[in-house]
Simulated scan of single mutants.
Amino acid sequence: MNDTQVSQVPRGRSLALLLAPLAVGGLIAVGLGVYGRVHLATGYAVGPAGFSGPLAMKSWLTTGAFLLALVQLLSALVMWGRIKLDAPWIGPLHRWSGRAAFLLTVPVAFHCLYALGAQFDTPRVMTHSLLGCFFYGVFAAKMMALPRRGLPGWALPVLGGLAFTALTGLWLTSSLWFFTTIGVTL
């Protein structure tokens, strides 16, 4: 979207276009948190095929998602003109790296919610639980905002930046913790 398209929509209307995506994202985040808190954790959800255990599986999949999120960040900077690069392939790279990153998070989130639930017993785990809910909420808001025309020019970069920040926090509170506490194992 260019500046001309943004300026054609009145300011109040352009902000109103964000309300539905933000509301749905907020409902998803809160819904996941409530489900994770009231659901009776099973202790088991996803078989860690090819991994030594569920923590290793979650750590490596989250690391893959985090690396793809770095690709997302760099490709977004190119798309928004912050990094000058003539790369007609950057849009497809951005879309496909985002899809792959999201898909890597799904078994991790499923295991976290179904097997463990949202936990608040230690600061690291509480932060991780809250960031997980926030990540899926902001991701949903961004996906809903993408096809909307007339959004403020800052909306998609802010939503994308929030998703990146949440995923970075998830990686720091899970994978980095695992690799530095348990060790680098498959």
Rank of each mutant, 00 (worst) to 15 (best):
L77W: 12
V106N: 00
A155L: 05
G160P: 06
G150P: 05
F139A: 15
G81N: 10
L32E: 05
L159K: 11
I28M: 06
W60M: 02
S52P: 14
A166V: 03
T127A: 03
L15N: 11
L15F: 12
A23E: 14
A118E: 09
S97L: 05
R124C: 08
P48D: 05
F110V: 11
D86T: 09
G169Q: 01
A76Y: 10
T122F: 07
W154Y: 07
W154V: 07
L131V: 00
V38G: 05
L103V: 06
P88D: 03
L18A: 07
L113H: 08
L70N: 14
V6F: 13
F135M: 03
A41I: 08
G25L: 08
I83R: 11
A65W: 04
A109M: 03
W96K: 08
L70P: 12
A45R: 03
L32H: 03
G43C: 08
C133G: 01
P21N: 08
W60A: 00
V71C: 00
F134Q: 01
Y35Q: 04
G137S: 02
G36F: 01
G161V: 00
A65D: 04
G47T: 15
T4G: 10
V108I: 02
L19F: 11
G26H: 04
G36W: 01
L162I: 08
A23Y: 09
F135G: 03
P152H: 01
T165A: 15
Q8L: 15
Y35R: 06
G117V: 03
L186W: 08
L40W: 14
S129T: 06
V158S: 05
S175F: 02
G98N: 10
A56N: 07
W60F: 06
S7V: 08
R95N: 12
P123V: 13
A100D: 04
V138S: 01
T42P: 07
V6W: 15
A87I: 10
F164R: 15
G50F: 02
F120Q: 03
V108K: 01
P92A: 13
Q72D: 04
A155Q: 05
L55V: 12
L186D: 05
F179Q: 11
A115E: 00
G36P: 00
G26W: 02
A65L: 04
A166Q: 05
A41L: 08
S175D: 03
G81F: 09
G26P: 04
G150M: 01
F120E: 02
L68Y: 07
I90M: 09
G53C: 04
A140V: 12
L162R: 08
M1P: 08
G43Y: 07
K142P: 13
G25M: 09
G161I: 00
Y44D: 11
F102K: 14
W80K: 13
A76G: 15
V6H: 15
L68Q: 07
